[in-house]
Amino acid sequence: MLHFEFVSPERVLFSGDVDQVDVPGVEGDMGILAGHAPLVTPLRPGILTIYNGGARETVVVIGGIAEVSPAGLTVLADQATPRDNFDAMTLASAIKDAEEDVADTTDEAQRDKLARRLEQLKTLQAALAQ
């Protein structure tokens, strides 16, 4: 069993033992099982999936960081909403903001970073639309 702590600034979303958690890392999705090697990665906007017994729970996370230590997995999400309650409008407005930011930024490196974020947000939107 994998010990899983899932917290956002507002509250503790989940704390307990699960079978597996799929985490949307910046460099790709990762399935974390018990005994995973210690790892730290920031999160991209995406869908986090918790597998427990036969049950599956999906949560939309926007930004944050995941840490795997021998004690278990800790996910610190900037924003997290269960998929069923997720409001597509918030995402749409976030995408619009990101588009404006990309257009406004003159700094090359900064724009690359923002463009990548925009790309991630759009991917998430597409994934949610399915």
Partner: peptide, 21 residues
């Protein structure tokens, strides 16, 4: 001590993560 001597893998670099965190 919690790590028991094991080193973290960082994805991407530790520096980038620290700069953000």
């Amino acid at each position: 001590d919690a790590l028991g001597g094991a080193a973290y893998e960082f994805e991407p670099e530790a520096e980038d993560i620290l700069h953000e965190l």
